[in-house]
């Protein structure tokens, strides 16, 4: 009996140790990604200052000029366009799903959003090439009296907007559903219309969570690669309008990362680009998640 118990305890100890090792892996991995990219970006920083790399717009790797500003601006513009398009649509849709939609309609809308979330980015990119690029080039650009090949910030923004819809909608619906029924009933009993309930009660309670949901969508948009790469044109210049092409950071990485060995400093520059991208995405992402957890703790 004693022997059995001691072997059981030993086994338990062993399992505990193995589990601990595995569960520390995410911490180890996150730290590793961060430091390895920084380390690999470092050689360039020893002979060029960080501001001169970030704010210079001269990108000529062969001449040793690695100005990342066009790429940073490109990332910024594409993401902001997508964000501006996606936010109103997704907030309205999530309010509809959470507060208005009859059950039958919900049964259609929820799977639709799940499917949108599951589609691979290369499919979105192909859709962009097939429909959105011609739409922008042939119909939207002439409307504003400009010429555009269609491969533009606007096209990338539209495609990206559809891609981040599910993220924002899913989180927003969850937040909206957590608003207590009693609050809504109280407002209704005072004679408020349903819109007034949404406007003065539900949104008041849920707005911080919805903002966090949007920021989460934003952080996804920053890092999206293949779909954007396929429709954005990839010209390393400072973009002038929504109809001009751009070259976001992820596209820069995707196009050049594999074959960067021969030119001195190139490897470092690309790793710096990856590190900057990581930094931008993570700061938005963590801000949103931290805020959502805080909200969760207060309500539940």
């Amino acid at each position: 009996m004693e022997k059995i118990r001691s072997s059981k305890i030993k086994k338990e100890k062993f399992q505990r140790l193995v589990g601990a090792a595995f569960s520390l892996f995410p911490l180890f991995l996150a730290a590793n990604i961060f430091f390895i990219l920084l380390l690999k970006a470092f050689p360039l920083l020893t002979f060029k200052s960080l501001p001169s790399l970030i704010f210079s717009s001269a990108w000529q790797p062969v001449k040793g000029q690695f100005g990342l500003w066009p790429f940073i601006l490109g990332t910024f513009w594409v993401t902001i366009t997508a964000f501006a398009l996606a936010v109103p649509v997704s907030i309205l849709t999530s309010i509809y799903i959470a507060e208005y939609a009859p059950d039958q309609l919900k049964k259609i809308l929820v799977p639709v959003i799940d499917l949108l979330a599951g589609l691979p980015s290369v499919i979105y990119g192909m859709w962009g090439v097939l429909l959105i690029v011609p739409l922008v080039g042939k119909y939207l650009a002439p409307l504003f009296d400009t010429y555009s090949s269609g491969y533009s910030i606007l096209a990338a923004g539209i495609v990206l907007a559809v891609m981040i819809l599910p993220t924002i909608i899913n989180v927003s619906v969850e937040v909206l559903n957590s608003v207590p029924m009693a609050l809504k009933e109280a407002a209704l009993s005072l004679g408020a219309t349903r819109f007034e309930v949404v406007r003065y009660v539900v949104l008041k309670k849920a707005l911080p969570g919805i903002v966090a949901a949007c920021v989460l969508g934003l952080s996804r948009a920053f890092g999206e690669t293949i779909a954007v790469l396929m429709v954005v044109g990839n010209v390393p210049e400072i973009p002038r309008s929504l109809f001009s092409p751009a070259y976001p950071l992820p596209a820069l990485l995707a196009n050049n990362y594999g074959e960067m060995m021969s030119i001195p400093g190139y490897e470092s520059a690309l790793n710096l680009a990856a590190f900057l991208l990581l930094l931008i995405v993570l700061s938005f992402n963590l801000l949103a998640r931290w805020y959502l957890t805080k909200l969760n703790r207060r309500t539940g």
């Binding site: 569960s23 520390l24 995410p26 911490l27 991995l29 996150a30 590793n32 990604i33 390895i36 990219l37 690999k40 952080s219 920053f222 890092g223 999206e224 690669t225 992820p250 990485l253 995707a254 990362y257 594999g258 690309l270 790793n271 990856a274 991208l277 990581l278 995405v281 993570l282 992402n285 963590l286 998640r289």
Partner: peptide, 23 residues
């Protein structure tokens, strides 16, 4: 801390994983 690290990892774009994997 572990859950935080997992959230961090979830947020990292897959192109950065690609770069990291390549290194």
């Amino acid at each position: 801390a572990i859950r935080f690290a997992l959230d961090v990892l979830w947020g990292i774009p897959s192109i950065v994983y690609g770069a990291f994997g390549f290194l």
